[in-house]
Nucleic acid binder design. Sequence first.
RNA 1: GGGGAUGUAGCUCAAUUGGUUAGAGCACCGGCCUGUCACGCCGGAGGUUGCGGGUUCGAGCCCCGUCAUCCUCGCCA
Length: 584
Amino acid sequence: MLKRTHSCGELTAEHLGREVVLNGWVNAYRDFGGVVFIDLRDRAGLTQVVFEPEAGTQLQEAAQSLRNEWVIGVRGTVRRRLPGKENPKLQTGEIELQATELEVFNATQTPPFEIDGEANEELRLKYRFLDLRRPEMHRIVEIRHRLAQTMRRTMTELGFWEVETPILGRSTPEGARDFLVPSRIHPGHFYALPQSPQLYKQLLMVAGMDRYFQIARCFRDEDLRANRQPEFTQLDIEMSFVQFEDVLATMEGLVKALSREFTGEELSTPLPRLDYHEAMERFGTDRPDLRFGMELIDLGDLAAQTEFKVFKDTIEHGRRVRGICAPGAAEKYSRKDLDALTSFAGDYGAKGLVWLKVEAEQFTGPTAKFLSPEVQAAFRERFGAKPGDLLLIVADTKDVTSAALSALRHRLGRELKLYDPKSFHYSWVVRFPLFSWDAEEGRYVAEHHPFTMPLPEDLHLLESEPLKVRAQAYDLVINGEEAAGGTIRCHDPAIQSTIFRHLGLSPEEAEEKFGFLLSALRFGAPPHGGIAFGLDRMVMLYAGLDNIRDVIPFPKTAKGTDLMTGAPGTVEEKQLRELHIRQR
RNA sequence: GGGGAUGUAGCUCAAUUGGUUAGAGCACCGGCCUGUCACGCCGGAGGUUGCGGGUUCGAGCCCCGUCAUCCUCGCCA
């Protein structure tokens, strides 16, 4: 085998006259009948190889038979390109390799798509091993590598130990649907793949491991999205003898290291913080994109005074009238565009969208005639609106106005280019509610997870008004994406049992499902808390991408299938028998 | 579970209002060419228009169903 002495990305004028061997894939061939050029590609780059007739007929003919994506080894001499023939687009553009020997390792079938061309995603996923040859995919995989390495290095510097936890665990109530693995040895019993290493990491704290981290694979059997896969990766972290502030401060050290590595920017800490309730009120979401303003404005008091029935009725029913002011958007959105925005708001439950174009004297729009000059003036002042602005108003429940306006704000922010898409904004959203109410199941559900510690100042409400209790919970939000989330854990058995009761878990059920953790918490559990970063989403952010499949080497489709391997697939009857499984 | 988009040559796309033999570029095969780097030139091969049914004198185009992929609401502590 012609074994390489250098990569295809490193030869320069420094190597002139040296005899070297390169290995790689044929990226392009240019056959002039006499002289033949090959661009040879490996992970490091491209190098031009020249085959000249003077080197012999046999080599010449071999070179002329080369095709794209063949895998070859070439021996030759590094020489300077002819004057004026340098290629400044290549790192190696000053030189070329004058070939003396060629070995074909593998002649390829015609690839189903061109490696440096475009192909639809379905085909790319079916032939992922070819798709991953593309330099863009190499760039992403390298970012992923650097992210993991920066995390490992920084966590180690901060005194954390990397510890592995089981993949085969047990199914616990609460949270997402589990992926189940049937037990062969125990008929009718199942393992569950972890939704996160949550319980194990708390046990590690009880075990005195003090500071733990893991780059952990997590599994959730829920429907997929552009930024959601059934298996994904988290940087999972837990620390002992800490309070709320300690976790945030420590994690800011990590965030600073990441920012330094990926954007070169030195973040100033502490990072901005936003209360959950304030975020919901000002932005309608618990993960606002703070790279631009356009905050949600409450119009309830003004709406009640108008002659517009929709507004009046909404307020009389105790609901909300809120809106946003899109700067300079009045001219940019046609009637058709506004219909599209109305339908878009409808996706989030809004039954309508009131739009008003702000002109020098008055508002225009179908609803303008219901608003007196006084009300219009008050709106204008409340929004800080200027002529040319577009007001978008939703009248509905708090939840619907939040969801619809937050989505509109996000969409318009992007369409109106209110921020630099390459910029980064980091902030904490803190003090989430401990519970929310699940109307379908008629019970409280944990907003984060069942082992979260309430805020000390809200403890007196835990019995009487659980929905008003806030948790010691925190999310790291980057550019409107939830990049990380965590809590201080409950290590007080009395509080924990009250929480279980609200969740509809009897002491017996709690013991049955979480006995091992409850037991551990009674055996000398230190105050502890932690957080988990969504590694895939962070790769997306730093790679500038908006699709999670692009940052996972072998991802699943939106229906959860793997187009390359065909998973999930059927199995032999014998396998099912061994697992004591009969198909319905 | 609901809503929406897409599906034509190996790839990326085109095909007027339903009308002749479904085209182009790239890739592939053959030929020519000694300085290209998206090499160029000449020639060739390549099609179940996702699949099934229907309407029609006639369907890539219209209708019904179905499959796949994507986006999205619900869902995702």
